[in-house]
Design a protein around this nucleic acid. Structure first.
Length: 514
RNA sequence: CGCAGGAUGGAGCAGUUUGGCAGCUCGUCAGGCUCAUAACCUGAAGGUCGCUGGUUCAAAUCCAGCUCCUGCACCCA
């Protein structure tokens, strides 16, 4: 059986991890975990894009070899993944030989097929910025300081025949309405394709840029970083080997909205089509995190959220829960400290963490630390059982549809109902009265089972906390949602020590909102 | 200019594809409970769904026009 193959964009090595990188990986990880709960084998790829002008420049400025810089940045990004419980299966780096080989094979294949031609390129070149510039970049008729003096130069380069595949791509997108989600993003792609395409310049002369993959048919050039980067999706899964079809075509590319057009929705499908390969099945373009009040986050404005600070202070699950609960698929969302704390306290600490605390405490105090058997269900129990069954069904549907916010909302409705049920049956009262032990047993067993089901459904979002809950209530692991149903699995189970899952954070200990 | 997104009780958001009693979280007010992380539960107040017009038995949702906010060199999820 082919794996469900999911990728994130590979991060560019000329930068450090920020909330956007963190979000994308959490999203991808949660998708993979939810697929695995449906019994679907998955392959989860992420990685680092290491070539290009910017990396070369930054390395020079710091007096490092480009590879040294990349090695250090790779550690930063891998550390981010580790700290956020991102369970990728493979981490591709574009300087690895397995990648270079595939890039060169693909270039040669395109060249042989007549998809690549050599032509002079005339343009305005800035020595200071070391790139070609456009006239529209002028400000008030003058070039800005970072561009400086500009001269018209002619340079021979290699071009990929994008334009000849435009009609095909339009037809493809019109036939495959769900290629890009959300749907309005696909409409943007079609809008972009209404204009004629320019052929894509895929080379850089080595005199300008050394840090790249050499063209197999001309050693004076390296390939353009976008071409290089996109190929990671096939190089990492062994393009050209037996194993390739185990993963390709990719089932989902998770990317940010900024690199949808033209890179992922135009260049990439056309490159694949030009060599007769299968296209990925779907691209998910997610939105951006904005600072309080909808401002763009940036270091210079000093309003950038540091995901690792949150993961450190509140735990990886709290960060994961917030971003998955708060962002609607494809839209931009705000990340503010107030919003974060509201979710942390209201949902995680009070609704979920406190339910575990009160339940574990009661089982210890009233039942000697072991869940009793539930016995016959009354009306309230049947009501909660039905809601749990319904929640399993609904949440699986939302997960399948990548609607994490709605999935989590439905699971927390179940938790709210469990808290309400506790109030209705009031085991603490039953425990004080004579002859009501069977009612007490029924109440605690019912609460435990509701919590077991909710925890099972929360695994993709908050894997560590969900695992802790299952352990503390003495439940076995939940590995497959297809058989997650109300049961008496907890009867006789020994509960663990009491635990504060999401400790209350006092105002003075909270991260100051910069 | 054009393109895209947004405008829904005090705050933040779902709902719009496929029209059908306006939903969630937080906050506010009143009450309950005491197993629990000052937590949990109940009830209440609070909305002409940006504006105008149209279609319809019925519009937050469809259609037309308009207003305001955001993004659209490069880089950046």
């Amino acid at each position: 059986m082919k794996n469900f193959y999911l990728t994130t964009a590979i991060d560019y090595a000329n930068g450090s991890p920020h909330i956007g990188h963190a979000y994308e990986k959490v999203l991808a990880d949660a998708i993979v975990r939810s697929r695995r709960m449906e019994g679907i084998p998955c392959h989860f790829l992420t990685g680092l894009d290491e070539h290009g002008q910017k990396v070369q420049e930054t390395a020079e400025r710091r007096g490092l070899a480009p590879q040294e810089l990349c090695d250090s940045v790779a550690l930063d990004f891998q550390n981010l993944c580790r700290r956020l419980s991102i369970g990728y299966d493979d981490y591709i780096r574009t300087t690895e030989q397995r990648h270079k080989t595939v890039v060169q094979n693909l270039l040669q294949q395109l060249h042989d097929a007549g998809e690549i031609y050599r032509a002079p390129y005339r343009g305005l070149y800035s020595t200071r910025a070391e790139r070609f510039v456009q006239e529209r970049e002028m400000v008030n008729g003058r070039w800005p300081d970072d561009i400086g003096e500009v001269v018209e130069v002619e340079e021979t380069n290699y071009f990929f025949r994008l334009s000849r595949h435009r009609e095909w791509l339009i037809a493809f997108l019109e036939k495959n309405k769900n290629f890009v989600v959300p749907a309005f993003r696909q409409r943007q792609v079609l809008e972009f394709l209404r204009e004629p395409l320019n052929d894509l310049c895929i080379s850089r002369p080595k005199v300008r840029l050394r840090w790249g993959i050499e063209l197999p048919f001309d050693p004076d050039y390296v390939t353009y970083v976008w071409f290089d980067a996109l190929v990671n999706y096939i190089s990492a899964v062994g393009h050209g080997t037996e194993a390739f079809s185990q993963n390709w075509p990719a089932d989902l590319h998770v990317i940010g909205k900024d690199i949808l057009v033209p890179a992922h929705a135009v260049y990439w499908p056309i490159i694949l089509h030009a060599v007769g390969m299968e296209l990925p099945r779907q691209i998910l373009a997610h939105g951006w995190w904005l600072a309080k009040g909808g401002e763009k986050m940036s270091k210079s404005l000093g309003n950038a959220v540091q995901p690792l600070d949150y993961a450190e202070l509140y735990g990886p699950d709290a960060f994961r829960y917030f971003v998955l609960r708060e962002m609607t698929l494809g839209q931009d969302s705000n990340f503010s400290h107030e919003l974060f704390l509201a979710r942390y306290r209201g949902d995680l600490a009070n609704e979920l963490g406190n339910l575990l605390s009160r339940l574990v405490h009661m089982v210890h105090r009233y039942c000697g630390g072991r869940f009793p058997a539930a016995g016959a269900a009354g009306e309230e129990e049947r009501h909660l059982q039905n809601l749990a069954a319904e929640t399993v069904r609904i949440a699986r549907g939302f997960y399948g549809n990548l609607e994490f916010s709605s999935a989590l909302e439905s699971i927390f409705s179940l938790l709210k109902a469990a808290n309400r049920y506790a109030e209705l049956r009031a085991p603490w009262k039953l425990a004080r009265e004579e002859g009501r032990t069977s009612e007490l047993a029924r109440a605690l067993a019912t609460l435990g089972e509701a919590l077991r089901i909710a925890a099972g459904l929360l695994i993709p979002a908050i894997p560590t906390a969900a695992e802790t809950i299952l352990q503390r209530i003495g439940a076995g692991p939940v590995a497959d949602w297809r058989n997650l149903a109300w049961s008496d699995a907890l009867a006789g189970a020994e509960v663990g020590d009491e635990v504060i899952l999401f400790p209350r954070v006092e105002e003075e200990d909270a991260l100051s909102p910069l």
